[in-house]
Design a protein around this nucleic acid. Structure first.
Lengths: 355, 355
DNA sequence: ATGAAAGCGCTAACAG
DNA sequence: CTGTTAGCGCTTTCAT
């Protein structure tokens, strides 16, 4: 009953050709003009009688005709598609399930629509990282927004050397040959940690994987804030883990089992922080009385957690716009510079009021 | 410093052509073979000496050569891109900010990657609904997954008549000419409402826009469950609203201001339910003691809300897989049938224990 | 096992 | 103002 396929070809006829898709020549024939006239009409070429133009456009619309993008491109027309690419880990599939990542994609999508572009989302297995620009290489997209700098700095630099147009969401690094847009992670780490220290915390655990550039910067902020107070962070308080709720729960367990003393957690993402919240609760530790918790991102989850999560806010709206605008500017031949967006502390109920 | 543009052309030379992109002819020249040999090597044509094939592939890889997808397509090669399209409302921009919608996109993305496809995300202003298949019409995508049946049933039927390949996420409707994948909304509405009634609720407000097909079915479930108990729902308890947290808060205010008596809320999405939760709290109503609340979707937010939200779970993983598989099956010439996925009630703390 | 050549659907000179 | 024509970069017969 439900048909989504084109109707079968009129197979009875003798010279039955494939029911090939409508094309310019068909429109031309029906309108009694040449193909070039149709081409010109559809692209609103100026020197063409308004009447003809009108008539042809009308006809094309009524027949639902759209020009073949491949053929147009071959003739040099620029496509309106931007690739959003990221390294995909088939095992964990974290990206497409991570609320922060999805929200970022959403904001990029908004920004692209505003500018009249569509978004080709490409997940690339890390083993074939060079394929991250595959959509550009095959000319399906005019440029790439790379999400997930992770620890691919070296390989991203190689891409830049190749002269491929792209912009990266991530941390600004010393010797980078590419353009990044990212939050001020160092500041975020400092703000979170200072807030915890001011509220009386002395042994702050760090949850997150410092081999990832952005997390490394949050980690640095964590160190810097403590050193500014003359404190030397206990290395046992650094708990490397992927961005998965399960990991945070496990580390809370371990911390407690191992008898490591801690009175606060600074988690590198809200997902980790919220998971820590519930793990702490199940161990009978009260938040914020016994253990204070600060997250990172400020996704909607944070405000709804119980207790509501104190966190470091990233401005995704600005991020999406900046990534898109910088890429388009670069494609336009302009020189572009890395951009660091401010982070702000959002104080809620998972931390105590500073004395 | 940061360069994302290709290097300037070697402008000094006399016959300085554009630094055009590497193409098959270049590989052919460098490998001392004909273009056709390169083409065959790259597509692993069988009758070709393994040695030549190897050598050419190696060369192409080392030069980062990728064939132009437009040209390939023109020659009849099938592209590996599926469009995911949805009606876009520029004012509210709800879609790209809605956690449920984003999660659904994520699951579709996972399923597509698994099958080796990439995902072209296209937002289309509702005024030009026909453009929903633009990516297919221009042959940038082989088919379309339409998200957001909303109240476009008529127009979607027209698409089907056109013979365009697509699959829709949404409600199964009587006279549909297209294939849908959707949750069992009627069941979900019934489960939620029965649970509330069993827990003693008698005046259950309905939050959501029943002009949208899926919501209409949840609404029907709400009615059916009450009628099964011989109750006639008070029409004033139906509060139509868009999928925005702000709207839910406003309706809670209004319900209370207008003095409408209610002891439960069944919201058509978790976002609405969670917003209702906090609005009720700010009016001094206790959940679940004074007012019970049930949501829909079971996004991560639901479990974290306080009190944790009782909700109707949709199986997004199954949804993403089904949408992709059905579209691919249809493209493969198979007949496909609408699919309704089961919904389940997840009982948490925003409802009372049934007596 | 490899090469020559035709042509996919379109755009943009160049003519008229 | 409109039509004719030459390719865009590739795949694929058909020859060799």
């Amino acid at each position: 009953m439900t048909r989504t396929k084109p109707p079968a070809p009129p197979a009875g006829e003798p010279g039955a050709r494939k029911p090939s898709r409508l094309q310019m020549a068909d429109i031309a024939r029906l309108a009694n003009v040449s193909i070039s006239t149709v081409s010109r009409a559809l692209s609103n070429h100026p020197r063409l009688s308004e009447q003809t133009r009108e008539r042809i456009n009308e006809l094309a619309r009524s027949l639902n005709y759209s020009a073949d993008a491949g053929a147009q491109m071959l003739r040099g027309k620029r496509l309106n598609t931007v690739a959003v690419a990221f390294p995909y880990h088939p095992q964990q599939r974290q990206h497409f399930r991570d609320p922060f990542f999805l929200a970022l994609i959403g904001r990029i999508g908004d920004a692209l629509i505003d500018r009249g572009y569509s978004m080709l989302v490409v997940g690339v297995e890390e083993a074939q990282f060079e394929r991250i620009t595959a959509a550009y290489d095959t000319r399906q997209a005019i440029g790439t927004i790379l999400l997930g700098q992770e620890n691919y700095h070296r390989r991203i630099n190689e891409l830049a050397v190749r002269g491929v147009p792209f912009v990266v969401w991530g941390a600004r690094l010393r010797d980078q040959l590419y353009c990044t847009v990212g939050s001020d992670n160092l500041l975020g780490g400092r703000l979170a940690t200072e807030h915890l220290l001011a509220a009386g915390a002395r042994r702050i655990a760090f949850f997150g994987d410092p081999t990832l550039s952005e997390i490394a910067q949050r980690h640095e902020g964590w160190i810097a804030a403590q050193q500014a107070r003359g404190l030397t962070p206990d290395p046992r308080l650094v708990r490397p883990m992927p961005f998965e709720a399960e990991a945070a729960r496990r580390e809370v367990d371990r911390l407690i089992e191992d008898g490591v003393d801690f009175d606060a957690v600074f988690a590198a993402s809200d997902v980790l922080a919220v998971a820590a919240l519930s793990a702490l609760k199940s161990h009978g530790r009260r938040v914020p009385e016994d253990v204070q918790v600060v997250g990172f991102d400020d996704i909607p989850l944070a405000a709804q957690a119980s207790p509501a999560l104190t966190t470091v806010r990233q401005d995704l709206e600005a991020a999406g716009r900046a990534l898109v605008d910088l890429l388009l500017a670069a494609l336009d031949g302009q020189a572009i510079e890395p951009l660091i967006l401010p982070t702000t502390l959002v104080v809620r109920d998972s931390t105590r009021t500073p004395a």
